[in-house]
Design a protein around this nucleic acid. Structure first.
Length: 646
RNA sequence: GCCGACGUAGCUCAGUGGUAGAGCAACUGAUUCGUAAUCAGUAGGUCGUCAGUUCAAUCCUGACCGUCGGCACCA
């Protein structure tokens, strides 16, 4: 006699065991139609699950977020059935729902191509229109293994093999097709609906391990209805327009070419942007108590051997040599060993700690070819790197200080929010458990003090210490680690850094490796996408275009441009004999934030007509006033703060 | 690195086993015009590189380089 409590607080009693289906039907035909699954005592389960005890019950309908995930998961099953129907001999492996959709990994000698999609999609629609119910059954472990092995599904058999002994092994049957699955599922294949689309094929390693076989993965997207699907596809198109590679080309910011794969040719406009960011960072670091240094690009292998990089990182290092000398030099992949060398010069006192050593350090890493991505993942990049030499007791306060600086920098660049990951001790690590306890504790405490919320990234810390990763998202929805803070007990030891303490004895400092932008290249890539090339004035490579309407205004336009430049603005003078419409269009496409239009009227009055990018309004201002306003607006945020708060 | 796709003019792209086209951009000329494309003309390409097949390859095959999408990697 289960009593079922519904979300509105009402209680319904039934004689004997019931299922979600019968409860929904008892409540009303509308709900019976809409209910796809249910949350039984908070746990998402099939609607057909028997309810034997008193429970709380919430029905899941298409409106719920949980439904979206089920649609995607069920779509993956439908995809798998379709593929096996069309391509006999293909083995199924796993197929989860993911952000925006789903995928399914298949084992097949010949990989799929996008040309296969129309046939697969048609078969999927057929399966969906059949609306076969998803039927759950429990199977004995050994039987399950035998069942899939007999079908030639060795991946499924392996999956069961590796499930914990305590796990109940369940199968889901849709029509004649059966898959190993934990569930839950909706009522039947028809609940998937038709708002789905296969998106791309890709290779993926079995169980994500590159030593395993390469499977053939099909990605799809699925939504509640056509409107949502269309909106998603539209969003993808929009994202493509923001892609930094596209904008970088269109605006002439940089280019890359095959003779220097993974390195960037910065063009004048792109370099202007780069320098605006660098100048800004330099001021923030100066103000933040950092000392800037510059260390060598080429360093003898002896130092890399001492630091441990030669052993652990060598395949990622560019090695250089000269004919006359029997030496091997490496282009530095990191700055830390060099910074320790500076620290080691002379005798350091505890009074100097925390010592914050910063460098815009140009590094080279031989990244795998498949990892390269625009200017976000390159082989030559410049980190806004710094190492803070401090005592263990200073870790927490330095972290708080760093997070405050990082938040302020991100906010100034237009990123009010960001994600933080906390990576704690990995399985293989250096240092004692006590040391790790201390380091992780200090980081946690610092996060609490700084009000930073993080997600735990268990076991993903560096071998030398725990770390915080600060993650920003690009236009296509990919996450990129930019900032980082890593606690390191190992390198000071290996490279023999020490200071004289208050007690007169020698001690090891702790090193905090930290970066805010991460690399200028990656950060600028994300910045370009964040603004879609429409930068605020302080970052815009060309801040204003001065465009004439008639050639009679040329002399005055030159004067306008000259005076704007004198005020520190970056100006493009356009005296070409095109119509003003064409000029406005051209500079707008180049994302120039301000167009100063001058014609006869402005020349006579000593004014300019300002037009903002994307807007239609014109603002007619006396030249002096216009320049004052623009110069003020072009002031970087940190300098503006310095001005207003004496 | 692995799986797949792709590489044609500065850009976006079309095209064919018989050595290539469009639009925009560029250049020249005309036009002097009030806020997102004025008109006309000219020039521009070893069809990613190297091999192979063929009487003949941009097209077919192979290798390599690079780019793109994933996977793995990102100390």
């Amino acid at each position: 006699m289960p009593a079922i409590t519904l979300p509105d607080g009402s209680v319904r009693r039934f004689d004997g065991a019931v299922t979600g289906t019968t409860v929904a039907a008892a409540i009303g035909p509308g709900l019976a139609r809409a209910a796809l699954a249910m949350k039984l005592d908070g746990k998402l389960v099939d609607l057909s699950t028997p309810i034997e005890h008193d429970s709380s019950l919430v029905f899941v309908t298409r409106k719920d977020e949980a439904a979206l995930e089920m649609i995607r998961h069920d779509a993956a099953h439908v995809l798998a059935e379709a593929v096996q129907a069309l391509f006999p001999g293909t083995q199924v492996t796993i197929g989860p729902s993911i952000e925006n959709g789903f995928y399914y990994d298949f084992a097949r000698n010949e990989p799929f191509t996008p040309e296969d999609f129309p046939a697969i999609e048609a078969k999927m629609r057929e399966i969906i229109s059949r609306n076969a119910p998803f039927e759950r059954s429990v199977i004995d472990r050994e039987e399950g293994i035998a069942f899939f092995a007999a079908k030639g599904e060795k991946y499924k058999a392996e999956l069961i093999q590796d499930l914990p002994k305590s796990e109940t092994i369940t199968l889901y049957k849709q029509g004649e097709w059966i898959d190993l699955c934990r569930g839950p599922h909706m009522r039947g294949t028809g609940d998937v609906g038709n708002a789905f689309k296969l998106m791309k094929v890709a290779g993926a390693y079995w169980r994500g391990d590159h030593r395993n076989a390469m499977l053939s993965r099909i990605y799809g997207t699925a939504w509640r209805d056509q409107k949502e699907l269309d909106a998603y596809l539209h969003m993808l198109e929009e994202a493509e327009r923001r892609d930094h590679r596209r904008i970088g080309k269109d605006m002439g910011l940089f280019h890359m070419q095959e003779e220097a794969a993974g390195s960037i040719f910065w063009h004048p406009k792109g370099w202007k942007l780069y320098r605006a960011a660098e100048d800004y960072m330099r001021r923030r670091l100066d103000e933040g108590g950092y000392q800037e240094v510059k260390t060598p690009q080429l360093v003898d292998r002896a130092l890399w051997e001492a630091s441990g990089h030669w052993e652990k990182f060598r395949e990622h290092m560019f090695i250089a040599s000269v004919e006359d000398e029997d030496k091997l030099l490496a282009l530095k992949p990191m700055n830390c060993p060099c910074h320790v060398q500076i620290f080691r010069q002379g005798i350091r006192s505890y009074r100097e700690l925390p010592l914050r050593m910063a460098e815009f350090g140009a590094c080279h890493r031989y990244e795998p070819s498949g990892a390269l991505h625009g200017i976000m993942r390159v082989r030559a990049f410049t980190q806004d790197d710094a190492h803070i030499f401090c005592t263990e007791d200073q870790i927490a306060s330095e972290t708080v200080r760093f997070v405050a600086l990082l938040s302020s920098v991100y906010a100034d660049f237009g990123f009010p929010t960001f994600r933080v990951k906390f990576s704690d001790r990995p399985a293989t690590r250096a240092g004692s458990n006590e040391t790790w306890d201390k380091a992780e504790g200090a980081l946690r405490e610092a996060c609490a003090t700084a009000g930073v919320e993080y997600e735990l990234n268990p076991g993903e810390g560096a071998f030398y210490g725990p770390k915080l990763e600060f993650v920003l998202r690009d236009a296509i929805g990919r996450d990129w680690q930019c900032g980082t803070l890593q606690v390191d007990f190992v390198l000071p030891e290996r490279l023999d850094a020490e200071y004289v303490g208050e007690d007169g004895a020698r001690h090891r400092p702790v090193m905090l490796h930290r970066a805010i932008l991460g690399s200028f290249e990656r950060f600028l890539g994300i910045l370009i996408e964040q603004y879609a090339g429409r930068f605020p004035l302080w970052l815009a490579p060309v801040q204003a275009a001065v465009a004439t309407i008639v050639s009679d205004a040329d002399d005055y336009a030159r004067e306008v441009a000259r005076r704007m430049q004198a005020a520190g603005l970056s100006v493009k003078l356009d005296l070409s004999n095109q119509k003003i419409n064409a000029k406005v269009r051209e500079h707008s496409l180049q994302h120039v934030p301000v167009i100063a239009v001058v014609g006869r009227k402005e020349a006579e009055q000593g004014t300019v007509a300002l037009r903002r990018l994307g807007g239609e309004a014109q603002e007619l201002l006396p030249l002096d006033e216009a320049i004052r306003g623009l110069a003020e607006e072009a002031t970087p945020p940190d300098l503006r703060r310095a001005k207003t708060s004496p």
